[in-house]
Design a protein around this nucleic acid. Structure first.
Lengths: 168, 168
DNA sequence: ACGATCGTTTAATCAAGACTGAACGAAAGA
DNA sequence: TCTTTCGTTCAGTCTTGATTAAACGATCGT
């Protein structure tokens, strides 16, 4: 208790902790911009910063939100393949950690949504294919096709790199 | 007036019109899912299937929305580089059509936003200073870097292809 | 000058969803 | 069995943002 911490490392830890907090908030804002609940983004950010597993109630406490919010948003992130729920032997609580390849799954999710858009436009091309169709719709379809291909390429590259580095 | 249309082409037009309506609505729902106003999606869908240019008030009438909504959402889509506002010589009204190089600017916009988030994370890393930057934050930063690079690559490819096809 | 028509803006309404707190059923430990 | 702790769910609150109608300034035609 009466131990004065080393001023340098104390300052380091201090600023590091602040940096982590900022990172978590930033991720919350970013994910909110992307259409997800802010709490989901903060939860993801917390698990990104925290190397180990974090318990359900720790999440609620550290993020300062209700257990209900943790339940909902954790399930959401699980569904997106960004985090994983793990059982700890002696413990009754659920624990969470980052999924194996969170960003790969994230990009794949985006690609899937875009592919949906593409097929929607594709159907439009086919059904509205009268003589007087706007040629712009064809270019649009091509764009989505290329974008989807591009994203899946990116996902593959990320997956490969991920596998090389720590074969998760 | 007393001209009975060719039954085949008449039926074509009929089903085509229905298909277009459906397409417009679906595009509205889809864009709503993507975080844009539904009207913006329907407006975009209308210009996708309709050849040529459509006037401001035609948009309002055909979509059954107020002129204010057209004003707001058309500006939004213009900002994203998806549609263009064109002046018709004899007309006072504004006319709209699909943008010449759709999506290039859109992709650039997405890339810019991601780059912004990335630099924010970067700053956070730097503030933390020491050699012991959180590995999770580093991985996130790297992911954003690669994603941004990837997007800008895609934008460049699209721009080039666009320029080849109609040398604008 | 006047009236009409254009697009924009603003205040107000309205719906969607994020978040919470309490209630609930399940499971573990006493 | 009783109590506690767990995660989920549901009703309710609250915020955000989409949409509209009306007011507005600008511009054209007369």
């Amino acid at each position: 208790m009466n131990h004065t911490p080393d001023p340098i490392s104390f300052h380091m830890n201090q600023s590091c902790a602040e940096a982590r907090e900022r990172f978590i908030e930033r991720m919350g804002e970013h994910m909110e911009m992307e259409g997800l609940p802010r709490i989901a983004g903060r939860l993801f950010g917390l698990l990104l910063v925290d190397p180990g597993t974090v318990s359900f109630s720790d999440l609620a406490e550290r993020l300062g939100v209700s257990r209900g919010s943790i339940s909902t948003n954790a399930r959401l992130l699980e569904g997106k393949g960004l985090i994983e729920r793990v059982a700890v032997d002696g413990e009754r609580q659920d624990y969470f950690r980052l999924a194996d390849r969170p960003f790969v799954n994230m990009v794949r999710g985006i690609a899937a949504r875009m592919r949906e858009t593409m097929t929607l436009i594709d159907d439009g091309c086919r059904d509205c294919g009268g003589p007087s169709v706007n040629p712009g719709i064809l270019a649009t379809r091509d764009f989505f096709a290329e974008a989807v291909e591009n994203l899946e390429e990116l996902a593959a590259r990320l997956a490969e790199r991920c596998g090389r580095e720590n074969e998760q």
